[in-house]
């Protein structure tokens, strides 16, 4: 299971696929004050990234990675040079 959900946080691990939205979306609606941890996330489907960006929920583990996970945080960009 690539997502572990608690009332405080959702922890992404490995690849998070579009099918995981079915669990993630209602959890986000119910836990607007929670955080998302992408430290151990290796990749995520566009739909997952989109809902995270749309939610505006704080994301941890993406800052200073310099890799694709930078898209989770504003300005949602990745610089690979």
């Amino acid at each position: 299971m690539p997502i572990s959900l608690t009332p405080e946080a959702a922890v992404f691990e490995g690849h998070v696929d579009i099918t995981d939205i079915d669990q993630l979306h209602p959890w986000m609606v119910a836990n607007t004050g929670a955080v998302l941890d992408v430290t151990d996330c290796t990749s995520a489907h566009t739909a997952v990234v989109q809902i995270v960006v749309a939610s505006g929920m704080p994301v941890i583990g993406a800052e200073d990675t310099g890799d694709w996970r930078s898209v989770f945080n504003k300005p949602h960009s990745v610089k690979q040079v």
């Binding site: 939205i21 979306h25 989109q50 809902i51 960006v53 749309a54 898209v71 300005p75 990745v78 610089k79």
Partner: peptide, 26 residues
């Protein structure tokens, strides 16, 4: 040769509950 990429958000998002996550909006 990707050097930089950025997600372009729509001007505003609907409420999370009303959001259809299966429609691409970015």
């Amino acid at each position: 040769g990707l050097m930089w990429m950025q997600i372009q958000e729509p001007e505003s998002w609907p409420d999370l509950e009303a959001l259809d996550p299966f429609i691409v909006q970015i």
